[in-house]
């Protein structure tokens, strides 16, 4: 709030009404409904529901299927985050270093940001086509018959590859902008103190990138958890079966296809808690970050 603000009484209310109305109807109402129905067992034919307390939650946590999906989601998130961050960092450092063609490289390395996740999944389906996919043929050279949608690990790898491909540009943009904001004086001082390029990178550049890295870590975890939905859905071709899937995908499959509203809502609530925890963690990091600059 500005010190010298206006004090017209009705105008700010009028200005806030659209925003508040939309979030009340499409944010708070659904969130409360999710919380509410996670404590109920829905009749599959739509004849009301019974209060079951924490049963939906205990059922979930006791279910081997749910634990399997959770473990996969964790592995998937970890791999996607690590690989897309590492690859983007490497490319950003090089793009920051070269003199010739810097602008062209920047464009070439960031435009995939605009590609929709399901298109990335669609590309993976083609690359791993059973009979003529280029990557299937590559794996065949090493004696591995690649089968997306049949073999669990094969499907998982295709998902991870597509997810990393789609996420590298975002990380690249942030790393590059962080690198370019390192003051000249710091770089020159480092050049005098440390003659080896890799030494300079690990002792000076890398610590200066740490705040961006932490921030990106959260962004990437959120991406792997939620935004990869389109990739998962296209790679499994809408047929989850025994295929790998993420927690968000399971919310959709159980609730939308399986009509298990209570179970799906409980899953939503668990995810909400997870995201809240991540956000609190992020805010604490941000607070600490201020001291850096």
């Amino acid at each position: 709030m500005k010190r010298a603000g206006f004090s017209t009484p009705w105008l700010p209310v009028l200005l806030l009404v659209p925003q508040l109305a939309i979030i009340a109807i499409f944010f708070y109402w659904p969130a409360i409904v999710a919380l509410h129905s996670s404590f109920f067992l829905q009749d599959p034919f739509g004849f009301g529901s019974t209060f079951v307390g924490l049963d939906n939650y205990t059922n979930l946590l006791g279910s081997a299927e749910y634990r399997r999906v959770a473990v996969f989601t964790l592995t998937f998130t970890l791999l996607v985050t690590v690989f897309s961050l590492a690859l983007a960092l490497l490319l950003a450092v090089k793009a920051d270093k070269v003199l010739r063609g810097a602008k062209t490289y920047r464009t070439l390395l960031m435009w995939v940001y605009a590609v929709a996740p399901p298109v990335a999944g669609f590309i993976a389906v083609i690359l791993f086509n059973q009979s003529w996919g280029p990557l299937t043929e590559l794996f065949a050279l090493f004696g591995h018959t690649y089968m997306v949608g049949v073999n669990f690990n094969d499907t998982a790898f295709a998902m991870i590859l597509a997810s990393v491909w789609k996420q590298v540009p975002v990380n690249f943009i942030f790393f590059l902008s962080a690198l370019q904001s390192i003051p000249r004086s710091v770089r020159e001082a480092a050049l005098i103190d440390n003659r080896s390029a890799s030494g300079r990178f690990w002792d000076v550049t890398f610590p200066l990138l740490a705040p961006t890295g932490f921030f990106l870590l959260i962004i990437n975890i959120t991406y792997a958890l939620f935004e990869t939905f389109g990739i998962v859905d296209t790679v499994v071709k809408g047929e989850p079966g025994n295929n790998p899937m993420t927690l968000v995908y399971k919310v959709y499959v159980d609730g939308f296809r399986g009509n298990d509203l209570g179970g799906s809502s409980a899953q939503s609530v668990i995810l909400m808690v997870l995201v809240l925890a991540l956000t609190v963690f992020q805010f604490r990091l941000l607070e600490r970050r201020i001291h850096y600059t």
């Binding site: 925003q19 944010f27 659904p30 999710a34 939620f226 935004e227 968000v248 939308f256 939503s268 909400m272």
Partner: peptide
């Protein structure tokens, strides 16, 4: 209050409340 009501929405992506949102719509 308005500030907090609005900025809490940053915390939860649509994906986690997808089914109830569908029902509301």
């Amino acid at each position: 209050l308005a500030f907090w009501l609005i900025f809490t929405t940053l915390l939860l992506p649509l994906e986690v409340r997808i089914l109830p949102s569908y029902e509301v719509v």
